[in-house]
Amino acid sequence: MKLWIIIAILITPWYWSLSVPKNLFETDLKNDIKEAHMTAEWERGKIPNSFTNPFFSNWLGKLVNRRLSIVMENLDIGNYFFSGHPRERVGVEEKQKFFFFQFLLLLVGLTNPHLRKYARFLMIYSLIALAAVFVFKWRSFEQTLPLSIPFIVVMALGLEQIFQRLKR
């Protein structure tokens, strides 16, 4: 499995031209709270006054929603395998993270019976990585690299599956 993991890493463009991110664990919560306050205030200034406004339009909600939207952005499959389209047309910059054929490797990896062995690790790691995305707002090509690990593991399983079939 180690060999397949190394191969999966080597064929991944995400790892090729990588500069080490300096802002991986930086977060400016104070500024974020200030911005969330401003957004909520703007919204409340526009909508009709009601006793429900503080419940549904408040800084905490805005703060959480902003961060959740970044988490959700990282859950988009297009972010990883389909750089350049179609979201670039609507202003979302995307860079090639994996090759398209690696998507097929991923699908094959999901059918590997050994996946069960790694399921717990994949789940816990993914949750921790997504929690980090939530806290540190990882969006850029460099920052989101830790999210590649589960993909690499499943792709390695895909490679293993394919080569076992070929051996037979």
């Binding site: 959740l68 939207s69 988490v71 959700m72 952005e73 990282n74 859950l75 988009d76 499959i77 972010n79």
Partner: peptide
């Protein structure tokens, strides 16, 4: 089928 689209964006 993307969770990001269905549940977020």
């Amino acid at each position: 089928y993307s969770p990001g689209n269905l549940f977020g964006q």
